[in-house]
Nucleic acid binder design. Structure first.
Lengths: 138, 138
DNA sequence: TAAAACCACTTGCTTTTTACAAGTAGTTGC
DNA sequence: GCAACTACTTGTAAAAAGCAAGTGGTTTTA
């Protein structure tokens, strides 16, 4: 149900597991093709993936781009609106880093990386990286 | 599906809309009774509420407490683990503040409040408030 | 140039989850 | 002692997710 609460507003459009995992793949794992999302560890179904990509595009979190080399391929990229979800994903990562204990695979610090040491600085660095990778050429 | 990713770990246990809205109610709207959660603007169903409260308690995000005055009432309070989700909820609020535009009710800044001006300082203040309200007496 | 493979999806069906309404057992106030 | 209130539970219909197979277009291979 629609409500005027900012938290609910956000949750209504990106507050489901698969949506955020797709954004994670784009943001931290450098994935950009449909097949790459499909192959993620968590095993998203192809119909759900198609549905979420459509929603994400409709809500302007991502945009489609043609691949110059492989003409049948489509590249998915984050928009600024999508990139701005990064601090939120980082907070999930930081929380898990504190509470997940043994549930995490080793070497998963790639995500929170610099942010763990200095939040403001780490976020700034990550923003720069994402903006360079996803926003150039538009 | 279980995976070793910290983002997925978090999303598996608190990454659904109703769960986060209950935590929002506890955190920002000072709600503590079953009936208060039921009455929230978004209209959670009573069976879903019961289910989520059980999950939240099982995962130690909240705990039940007896109400001294009204003996049939149960008070729900956040644990430290639950309180530590605050920065994440704040990030949702900050994102919505930037992108929700006219979708928000006026005066909803109560949530992000001080955090909007100075993130580190605002979070610290909010942590102190929550720890005082939810953790004292245990 | 015909066949095989790969691309981003779509379709159909089953299972799980959610939504809504009604009911219940145990206090509490009058 | 009974009506009202508490935190739930139960039953059922609707919606969403999960799974497997298929599709139409492009690209690579023989």
């Amino acid at each position: 149900m629609r409500s005027g609460c900012p938290l609910n507003y956000g949750l209504e459009i990106f507050g489901d597991k698969w949506t955020l995992l797709i954004i994670r793949d784009l943001m931290f794992f450098n994935k950009k093709y449909y097949n790459e999302f499909l192959q993620s560890e968590e095993g998203i179904s192809t119909n759900i993936l198609a549905d979420r990509l459509q929603l994400l595009e409709k809500n302007k979190f991502i945009r489609k781009e043609k691949d110059g080399e492989h003409k049948q391929k489509i590249i998915y990229r984050l928009t600024q609106k999508g990139i701005d979800l990064m601090p939120l994903l980082m907070e999930i990562g930081l929380w898990s880093d504190k509470y997940a204990g043994s549930h995490l695979h080793p070497g998963r610090d790639i995500i929170i990386g610099d942010v763990k040491e200095n939040k403001a600085k780490g976020l700034k660095k990550m923003f720069a990286k994402l903006e360079k990778e996803h926003l150039t050429g538009c």
